[in-house]
Simulated assay, not measured.
Amino acid sequence: MRRILPELIDLIATRQIDPGKVFDLTLPLDEAAEGYRAMDERRAIKVLLKP
């Protein structure tokens, strides 16, 4: 994943792909711990943290 991450970020930034289909939970940045907990408990696959 680390090898292709820069390319994926560029594709997202240029709106060539929509990452929204990957994230199934959105939380504010200050609730990052809850996002990790949700993924650990299998309540979420990927969490999007917003500032």
Rank of each mutant, 00 (worst) to 15 (best):
L11D: 08
K46L: 00
P28H: 01
I12C: 12
L27Q: 07
G35T: 09
A32L: 02
K21L: 09
E7V: 10
L48T: 04
V22P: 01
G20N: 13
T14P: 04
P28F: 00
K50V: 15
R37I: 02
E34H: 09
I4S: 15
L5N: 05
P28L: 03
D40A: 11
T26E: 11
I17R: 10
K46F: 00
G20H: 04
P51M: 04
A33D: 05
V22L: 11
P19F: 10
A38Y: 05
R37G: 02
T14Y: 05
Q16I: 01
D18I: 08
R37T: 08
R2H: 06
A13C: 06
L8H: 06
I4R: 13
L5E: 11
Q16L: 10
I45M: 03
A32H: 09
M39D: 04
L27G: 07
E7S: 12
D18L: 10
E7W: 06
E34I: 13
D40V: 00
E41Q: 15
P6E: 08
L11F: 08
A33Y: 08
L11W: 06
R15A: 13
I12Y: 06
A32M: 10
P6L: 10
D10P: 02
A33F: 10
A33I: 06
G35D: 04
Y36G: 12
R3K: 12
P19V: 01
R42D: 05
T14Q: 12
K21P: 00
I17Q: 01
L25C: 09
Y36Q: 14
K21N: 11
K21E: 14
R37C: 01
L5D: 05
L29W: 10
A38N: 09
K50A: 10
R2V: 09
L5F: 12
L8I: 14
R3W: 06
P19C: 05
Q16N: 09
D10Q: 14
L8K: 13
R15Y: 09
P19I: 04
P6N: 05
A44M: 03
F23K: 00
E31G: 01
I45N: 04
Q16W: 03
R43F: 08
T14N: 15
M1N: 14
I9R: 14
I12G: 02
M1L: 13
I9N: 08
D40S: 09
D10G: 14
R43Y: 09
A44H: 00
T26W: 09
L8F: 13
D10S: 15
L29F: 14
L11C: 03
D10Y: 09
G35W: 02
Y36R: 12
K46C: 03
L48A: 13
L11G: 02
L25Y: 07
R15N: 11
R42A: 14
V47N: 03
L11A: 12
R42P: 00
D10T: 15
A44N: 01
I9D: 08
